Amino acid sequence: MLSGRILTPGGWIDGSIDFGQRISEIRADSSVDTALTILPGFIDLHVHGAAGADIMQGGDAAATIARAHARHGTTAMLGTTMTATDNSIRRALRGMAPVIEQRPAGGARMLGAHLEGPFLSIHRLGAQPADAVVVGSMDLVRSYHELAPIRVMTLATEVADHLALIPQLNALGIRVQIGHSNGTYEDGVAALKAGAAGFTHLYNGMTGLRHQEAGIVGAALAHAEYAEIIPDLQHVQPGAILAALRAIPRLYGITDATSATGMPDGEYGLGSQLVYKCRGCVRLATGSLAGSVLTMDQALRNFVGLGLDLADASNRLSLYPADYLGEAARGRLAPGAWADIVVLDADLQPVAVFVEGEAIDLSSNQP
């Protein structure tokens, strides 16, 4: 049982919450101490690494990443691949498969994979390697999907016949996101009409908004219900985040975290490339941003710092990503939902985290 100020689907309640693996009851009680704030656990739909581990390494990397992010309040996540050789992508998916099937003790639930590439535009690669980009095919996607369930795929929908893939990907249960795209506004609108559901790290890796060329950003701001954004205040300027919050009803935050997350400054791997952590960001040797070192608890504090009230900030890190994936028993504190809970102090720092009812050790000496 936990007591405090609890965010429920119906709003704030002062009271207590009873749970095992799932929540059994939430009771209002005006006499409880409300020094602690109780929120749904965070759900990160775009995470490459943490604690020196990178999803592309395969093996035990996915479990290490799930444990590291759980200590920052992430209770569910998608392991996210990089554009890479076919063998490397298969190694990453094989490494994720057992962690998806059985949650590691002390770790977040890995709900599936986010395939970020290799079906991208060579003109908007960001930190993705150009030599591994290929044109997508359903045969290739199905072979990946058999290794580990793909829940989200980033696609440059203007490339080759990618637009025609969208309904087929949806039929497999894969959410298609427009990203790493050099498309026009019209390309973005066409992709949404074909069944694309969102946009990958809004503003980054896509054609921008200009008054006479609205680009993929313009299509998102004009038409999107959902889009992900990196609220580390480095990938996107605060004013641009605020504009997106006004335009996109269910804009949600992701970390795009790399293996450098939770680690000291230095050299780390991001897929096949070296990246460098310095002064709170991660860059390629060229100086280009290459993922982040953001954690979801810091994302919450950043959203609140931009002026969002706490309930709105929480929804953008829990409820909206859960709804985007169709995970009705996650992202909310309600009877019958999984007991994915983060407890915060007055400074919005986690003091307790529960994943499916398991208390996570926050005192671990791991990053």
Rank of each mutant, 00 (worst) to 15 (best):
A240R: 14
S314C: 15
A240Y: 07
D297P: 05
L284N: 00
E228P: 06
I254Y: 02
G305R: 08
V293N: 07
Q234T: 11
R246N: 12
A285K: 12
A299F: 12
P264K: 03
L308C: 10
P238S: 09
Q273G: 12
E267A: 08
L325Y: 07
A243Y: 07
G305P: 03
D309N: 09
A299W: 08
S259N: 09
Y276W: 13
G239E: 15
L325D: 12
E327G: 02
D312W: 09
L274E: 12
L319R: 13
Y268T: 01
Y226W: 09
R246C: 11
H235Q: 06
Q298E: 11
I229T: 03
L284D: 04
P264Y: 13
D232Y: 01
I230E: 08
L310F: 00
P238V: 02
E327P: 04
S292N: 06
T258G: 00
A227I: 15
I248E: 09
Y276D: 06
A313P: 06
Y324C: 02
C278S: 13
L294K: 00
A260P: 07
L300I: 04
T295E: 12
I230P: 06
A247D: 00
Y252I: 11
R283P: 08
E225T: 14
L317V: 15
T258C: 09
G307E: 06
L319W: 05
K277A: 07
A222Q: 08
D312V: 14
P264I: 07
A299G: 04
L289V: 02
P264S: 10
D312F: 10
R283T: 14
G239V: 10
S272K: 13
D312G: 05
A260L: 01
Y320R: 13
G253C: 04
H223L: 09
A290I: 02
D312I: 15
S272Q: 12
P249W: 08
T295H: 14
T255H: 08
T286I: 10
V293L: 11
P321E: 01
P231M: 00
S314Q: 11
A227R: 10
L270A: 05
V293W: 01
A224H: 07
G280F: 12
A224W: 05
T295M: 03
G239Y: 06
A322F: 04
V293I: 08
Q234H: 09
A313N: 03
R246P: 02
L233Q: 00
G253L: 10
L221I: 14
I230V: 05
L284S: 05
P321R: 02
A290P: 11
P321T: 06
V293C: 05
S292L: 12
G253V: 01
R246T: 07
A240I: 12
G287I: 01
E327K: 09
L289Q: 06
R279Y: 14
A313D: 15
I229V: 06
Y324V: 03
Y324T: 03
R283L: 01
G266K: 11
D265G: 10
L251I: 10
P321K: 01
A285F: 04
Y276M: 04
Y276L: 12
L294A: 10
A299R: 01
D323I: 10
S318G: 12
Y276G: 13
V275R: 01
P321I: 01
G291D: 15
G253R: 11
G291W: 15
F303V: 05
L221Q: 09
S288E: 02
Y276F: 07
L325Q: 04
L270I: 00
A240H: 05
D265V: 15
